[in-house]
Design a protein around this nucleic acid. Structure first.
Length: 755
DNA sequence: CGTATATATCTTTTT
DNA sequence: GATATATACG
């Protein structure tokens, strides 16, 4: 094995690698030179092809690890690929450029930062900082932030960056009406500030790479020299900027292999262009196109259901996935189950999990895949109640937590005094008596002099521009920073962090905090210090924080998985639960509203991705009612439910839910299961109703109208602060209440309860 | 300045 | 229901 890379390229080298591949897979591996497009359906052994291909290239002596560039979309995919290649070649993948677009972009950018106006220790800012900066720019331009929210502009600019547009390149018709067409001007200012701050946002990592390559052909040429073989995973999810980046790099060797599946393109909202796949053959004439259609993952029923569903999409490249049925086994049909509300949905899933457990199925092989994050809660609560261990994959990630970001801001500021965003984040955390007013003053002075906040502060503490008390707080802060900076060079990152967290009073702040979350935050801070021990330099660590975001998951305890459909891509499980298949939830209402037909098709692809995660069992659920934003909402089953071919599905018997029928003042539940195709006529909108149990145990559902209860005029109510009172008049959701003790007050209906 | 209370807005999905 | 922002008060 050790002479793997140095042995002369015998024609048979690496043949052991491809022995167990099917014909199409083998073709994808053996087409080593020139452009290759692999259209890989779900479960067709894509990762296997990818990894074997790389191992094969090396085994043939075509390239050393350092001459291979392999790009993935997610860190998880990168990690997995790295591990599997290591397994194949029997050694770590050292030297190989393997990572996400952004991670590799950052790596390249650090080497040549000066050429695009940055220093090599530039900061990669997160969405928090991005927003903070944007708000300042909007304010500086005297634009009403209420009307033109910074968040909106941030995402507009991100989309522009996805397209590869610098401020000058945004086409006139795309400028939009943000702040009456000032969007581009604000974009320009935003970039200007980023340069001043020696910072780059996510989009810049690629955009600045493009600029670097275009303005400095010699540098591009050096990467042509370096990268002999390019490999791209999830090609259907690349945006234009990534596409341009790849095209530039591939100009050298033309040995580029892209793997993708148009049916699994689910990142259109983030600028992904399926068109990149369709365009491949034009961009790379003579490209070999290989289709992987033999599915090794799912049962015939699951595959049939998924194929039937995705067939409703127009504009596909068209693949027909097939399995070779094992002795005519179809497996279990996809189960479709209607439930009353999300609580019952969670209960149903919980029971099925327990059933499976009793039959020796492991939790690791079960996954609940939801459309949006807010859906996880009901399942978490239920699984806790019945004592089933679970993990939420994705969710709010470790490095996105407030305390972690604060801690990192300290470290950033120590490393780079120009980091105003970090400065602003923590200068008064914990409290140093520097409120809004002081910060405003400070900011104005600093900007006026063109200095960073920290530099300006050093001056300001010697003048009387701030009142003495504030000055003292600020002095303490900058002295702390200066001291830590002096220590930074001779301490390993984790020790420095420990000292900073302690001496700054940050840890103390959380220890004094009595809220329920405080202990967890302290725990996270400890975890942070522990995680830092793995890193040699602060540099390395902070890059990890901004680019990798998640923390290595611990050893594989047996736990059920809960995650969004998006984060499920690339994974597979024996059993997959697909709850929330209701119009409005899935397909997601906003998605359809904003992107129309294209949005709907992307939702359908998401459904397809969900189904094809399942090896043996898929259970689709839809609830008649659920709370969204704390308000009850009634939904009809998703059109996707109807699109599942009948001969691959089975309706589960469900108990205890049905329709609401008018019966005078009360609304009662009438038992009736929704029938296939009944969406419109039979399963019409269920009137919002709330379950209430009476003394004798009988449960009835009381309609509450759209939204929450609004107490009637004259009713007695209770308010947290004002106590008991009586409603005098109602104006929309505002109530005029005469309280027994506090007198007359205007209060939002949400703040009172019926007494 | 800091705190508490009132209101608004929010939920897509992620590097 | 949870969280960011605005306002009022101490």
């Amino acid at each position: 094995m050790s002479d793997l890379f140095h042995s002369p390229a015998a024609p048979t080298a690496g043949s052991h690698l491809i022995e167990r591949l099917n014909q199409a897979q083998r073709q994808a591996v053996e087409a080593v030179d020139g452009p290759v497009l692999v259209l890989a359906g779900a479960g067709t052994g894509k990762t296997r092809v990818l990894t074997v291909r790389l191992a094969y290239i090396m085994a043939q002596g075509k390239a050393a690890p350092g001459q291979i560039l392999a790009v993935t979309f997610t860190n998880r995919a990168a990690r997995e690929m790295s591990e599997r290649i290591a397994g194949l070649i029997g050694r770590p993948t050292e030297g190989m450029w393997l990572g996400t677009f952004h991670a590799i972009g950052a790596r390249i950018l650090r080497r040549h930062a000066e050429l695009v106006g940055l220093r090599s220790n530039f900061t990669i800012i997160d969405t928090d900082d991005q927003l903070r900066l944007m708000k300042q720019i909007i304010e500086a331009n005297q634009i009403d932030e209420k009307r033109w929210p910074g968040r909106a502009l941030t995402s507009i600019i991100s989309r522009w960056k996805d397209k590869g547009w610098t401020p000058d390149q945004v086409p006139a018709e795309e400028i939009g009406d943000f702040a009456h067409g000032k969007g581009v001007e604000l974009y320009k200012q935003y970039q200007h500030r980023l340069t001043e701050l020696n910072a780059a946002d996510f989009g810049d990592l690629l955009l600045l790479n493009l600029r670097l390559f275009l303005e400095h052909p010699d540098i591009l040429a050096s990467y042509h020299q370096r990268f002999r073989y390019l490999l791209v995973d999830e090609y259907q999810d690349t945006n234009v900027a990534q596409y341009l980046w790849l095209r530039l790099l591939a100009q050298g060797s033309r040995n580029i292999c892209c793997v993708g599946d148009d049916d699994q393109s689910i990142y259109g909202w983030r600028g992904a262009e399926v068109g990149n796949i369709l365009r491949f053959e034009q961009d790379f004439p003579g490209a070999v196109v290989v289709r992987l259609e033999r599915n090794y993952r799912s049962t015939a029923h699951i595959l049939g259901a998924a194929s039937g569903l995705i067939a409703n999409n127009q504009g596909r490249l068209g693949k027909t996935l097939f399995t070779e049925p094992v002795e005519g086994e179809m497996g279990e049909p996809v189960k479709i189950q209607g439930v009353w509300d999300e609580a019952e949905e969670a209960r149903t899933v919980g029971e099925t999990i327990e059933d499976l457990q009793r039959n020796d199925h492991v939790l690791n092989e079960m996954a609940i895949l939801v459309r949006a994050g807010y859906q996880t809660r009901a399942f978490e609560e239920r699984l806790i109640t019945i004592g089933v261990p679970y993990r939420v994959v994705g969710g709010l990630r470790f490095y996105e937590r407030q305390e972690i970001r604060d801690a990192c801001a300290y470290l950033r500021l120590i490393r780079q005094g120009d980091d105003d965003l970090a400065f602003q984040r923590i200068v008064n955390t914990p409290k140093r008596g520097l409120g809004n007013k002081s910060l405003q003053t400070l900011y104005t002075i600093a900007r006026g002099r063109g200095q960073s906040l920290l530099t300006a502060s050093e001056d300001i503490v010697t003048t009387d521009e701030l009142p003495p008390q504030r000055r003292a707080g600020l002095r303490r802060f900058i002295e702390d920073i200066a001291r830590w900076r002096a220590e930074a060079s001779r301490l390993p990152p984790s020790e420095l962090a420990e000292i900073v967290l302690d001496e700054s009073g940050y840890t103390g702040m959380w220890m004094a905090d009595k809220s329920v979350q405080a202990p967890g935050r302290l725990e996270n801070l400890k975890e942070l210090v522990r995680a830092m021990a793995e890193f040699e330099s602060m540099e390395e660590f902070l890059d990890h924080v901004s680019l990798v975001m998640d923390v290595e998951t611990g050893p594989g305890d047996d736990m059920a998985n809960i995650m969004t459909l998006h984060s499920a891509k690339g994974l597979e499980f024996d059993t997959v639960f697909l709850p929330g298949w209701e119009e409005g939830v899935f397909p997601n209402q906003r998605s359809v509203e904003e992107s129309g037909h294209a949005g709907l098709e992307e939702e359908r692809r998401l459904a397809y991705v969900g189904l094809t995660r399942a090896r043996k069992r898929a259970i689709v659920l839809h609830a008649a009612n659920r709370t969204v934003h704390g308000q009850w909402q009634s939904n009809i089953p998703s059109r996707f439910v109807d699109e599942l071919p009948e001969d691959h599905t089975e309706r589960a018997e469900a108990a205890g839910y049905g329709f609401v029928q008018d019966e005078g003042a009360l609304w009662q539940i009438a038992m009736n299961r929704p029938q296939r195709g009944d969406r419109q006529s039979n399963y019409h909108k269920v009137i919002e109703a709330r379950s209430q149990r009476f003394g004798d145990g009988e449960e009835v559902f009381i309609p509450v109208g759209r939204g929450n209860d609004v107490p009637a005029i004259g009713s007695r109510v209770f308010h947290q602060k004002f106590g008991y009172g009586m409603v005098k008049s109602i104006d929309g959701s505002k109530l005029d209440i005469t309280f027994d003790k506090a007198g007359q007050k205007k209060v939002m209906a949400d703040f009172v309860k019926l007494a």
